[in-house]
């Protein structure tokens, strides 16, 4: 059943310039070690009409409806909140690494500092105050946002779960792609 409160990232891929400000904003807010990135930006070189162009995909945890990390975790460290956010209780994590292998989006990392898993939680300490996560506030071209995505999907024909480097998956990822231009 679909969660009408489901929060997800809303990514206007056609406007992303690959600058990685989102990555850095996330690292700074979450005070991450330098080699740990919850959010990454990938470049794809694709053909459009007769020309090659660059397209970027900014991605982190997809806060899946059917999260692989949660399924495989033997310690029940993962839970889904009412707003659909998949959160990790690091006190329960034993560092077995199963979630890291299970996640199809490469969203979970092992922190060398304590040998436990870590991932994007959409900056819930900000979300719970009615604010936006660090990556969204850190995007200088405003191509990243968060919203209740089921409502977006029903209301707007320019929103879908299809983009360059992103598409449907059995884990039911909850990022949507906005496409206003061709």
């Amino acid at each position: 059943m679909k969660n009408k409160h489901q929060l997800g990232f809303v990514f206007r891929q056609e406007n992303c310039v690959g600058c990685q400000a989102c990555t850095i904003a996330c690292q700074i807010h979450n005070e991450l070690p330098e080699d740990v990135r919850f959010r990454k930006v990938d470049r794809f070189e694709v053909k459009r009409d007769d020309d090659m162009v660059d397209v970027w995909l900014s991605h982190s945890c997809m806060h899946c409806g059917n999260p692989a990390c949660l399924m495989v975790c033997p310690s029940q460290a993962y839970t889904i909140r009412n707003d659909g956010l998949v959160v990790l209780d690091r006190e329960k994590c034993t560092g077995c690494g199963l979630c890291i292998n299970a996640c199809p989006y490469d969203a979970v990392v092992m922190l060398k500092t304590d040998g436990k898993a870590a991932k994007c939680n959409m900056c819930i300490e900000l979300i719970d105050q009615g604010l936006k996560p660090a990556c969204v506030d850190g995007c200088p071209v405003k191509c990243l946002d968060t919203d209740r995505i089921e409502q977006l999907l029903t209301q707007s024909h320019t929103v879908s779960k299809e983009g360059i480097g992103y598409g449907h998956c059995i884990t039911k990822p909850n990022m949507v792609i906005v496409k206003e231009r061709l």
């Binding site: 005070e31 990790l88 690091r90 500092t113 819930i124 300490e125």
Partner: peptide, 9 residues
């Protein structure tokens, strides 16, 4: 991250 107390918060 090490100081996280309540379910990821």
């Amino acid at each position: 991250m090490a100081n996280a107390k309540v379910a990821g918060v």
